[in-house]
């Protein structure tokens, strides 16, 4: 059993689907932080069986749209003086801008420098989004 000391101040990303932790770590750019970041994978969980977990020893502005898109089951806890002062539960965002890329080869976004594209959620079950320009479906 590996023990990681309790966080005094920072953010805990809990209930990450097992195996998805590294993806969340990369997407949030945590590899570029100079603060302490701990990524734990395959942690025992009563609710999930196994889960991943990330502890960040700093107060970082998080993009909840990116997090919700990556894994809407994640719980975000803000810790101060070793105590959780705020929790946020994520949802799959209804629209995301500048995160997804359109994969349709016939879309104008493939050849022109378009504004950051907004995608609208069309199927929550499959996490599919539609491109605002061509309506083609895509997912992360």
């Amino acid at each position: 059993m590996i023990n990681v000391s309790k966080l005094k101040k920072g953010i805990v990303l809990d209930h990450i689907t097992a195996g998805h932790g590294y993806r969340v770590f990369r997407q949030l750019g945590l590899d570029k932080l100079s603060d302490v970041v701990v990524l734990m994978t395959n942690v025992d969980s009563e609710r999930m069986g196994k889960k991943d977990l990330i502890k960040i020893e700093t107060d970082l502005p998080l993009d909840f749209d990116v997090l919700g898109l990556l894994d809407p089951g994640i719980t975000v806890s803000y810790v101060e003086n070793g105590v959780c002062v705020r929790k946020a539960h994520l949802v799959l965002p209804e629209k995301v801008t500048g995160i997804l890329r359109c994969k349709n080869p016939r879309c104008i976004s493939q050849t022109e420098d378009v504004e950051p594209i907004t995608f609208h959620l069309v199927d929550a079950r499959t996490k599919e989004y539609a491109c605002e320009y061509c309506d083609a479906r895509t997912h992360l």
Binding site: R106, C107, I108, E112, V114, E132, Y133, D135, A136
Partner: peptide
């Protein structure tokens, strides 16, 4: 009229 989808919107 344009061959690319979404061109008119752009």
């Amino acid at each position: 009229r344009h061959p690319k989808e979404g061109a008119a919107r752009h």
